[in-house]
Design a protein around this nucleic acid. Sequence first.
DNA 1: CCTGAAACGGACCCTGCAGTCCGTTTACAA
DNA 2: TTGTAAACGGACTGCAGGGTCCGTTTCAGG
Lengths: 174, 174
Amino acid sequence: MTTELRADAQRNLERVLDAAEQAFGASGPDVSIDEIARLAGVGHGTVFRRFPTKDDLMYAVIERHVAQVTTFASEALSSDDPGEAFFDFAQRAAELMLSTPGLHKCVVHCGEKPGAAELEELGSKLVARAQRAGAVRRDIKPAEVGPLIRAALLAAPSGQGRRYLDVVLDGLRA
Amino acid sequence: MTTELRADAQRNLERVLDAAEQAFGASGPDVSIDEIARLAGVGHGTVFRRFPTKDDLMYAVIERHVAQVTTFASEALSSDDPGEAFFDFAQRAAELMLSTPGLHKCVVHCGEKPGAAELEELGSKLVARAQRAGAVRRDIKPAEVGPLIRAALLAAPSGQGRRYLDVVLDGLRA
DNA sequence: CCTGAAACGGACCCTGCAGTCCGTTTACAA
DNA sequence: TTGTAAACGGACTGCAGGGTCCGTTTCAGG
């Protein structure tokens, strides 16, 4: 990819992103940059050189996860059972979310979407297809599905995420 | 009630509570005490004399609302259609929550429950009764219902709260 | 090596906010 | 009216966290 960077810079960039992912994922948007820098074994000036703003760093971390979920979505789209594809996708995406509870709060904090245009589109297709197939209720817009699921997982008191998700998914069925 | 207070103190106490309710209700737990004091037309020292800690103030505000919801619950318990009672109650409670979106975040912030023991109990009865009557799915614990509904409303992008609630309530039906 | 540019990291600045203190004001009772 | 205890409110403190600066270190090409 972008390898216009000096070797040490590249290395530190990765360390910072890893640390940030871990920290934000565990504790949400309120972790301090100092904490992240400490985790990364780096001065906090170094963090700010790469990401002029705390929010920029958060965006970057979220983008990584969004990319992951996006591949889930495109895989699901290649399945030929629309209903099953949708619910399986939701399951997998939720799984990922459950492993990094703090990131939800970050997403909320960011007025949503860093680089989610593509995911948005794939997701919409996925939902629309499932609705056409009669597997998902019609009175809901594709864009609302994500927030709803995220909300359920957010409120789930650790360990209960699965059951909360089930309730919401059942609520989405036609 | 507690009228061991000088007249002006009593008056200011109410102003502070009103202002805090409005501020927390609108913007969540991050509003500053200064802002609340300003809204109440009071020095912020006055706020701290009554509520030694910001969290204490938040508790007080939440307690008010909890009391309100508790009366809803006890009214619902006196109805003789368990299913309808439950879903009506949820509707009314949600209505109240929707009018003060920031308060949810406060509740989350407070590690839950300030004075919710009674509500907890009434709510549990309400849910259990509805489950016995076959109106609500059995694989959910009464204590989980509140958080689930709160979550859906939290994630709803203003105006959509109603639809989100419907999804969750449908998910709860047997 | 040697050298210049790039990267480093911690000292530093600044803002915002929770919580304290104390001199002044106000309610109320005698 | 007046004395006093309660209440007031704003100045002040301490701290945490975001963001900047710059002297020092490290990489990489010649």
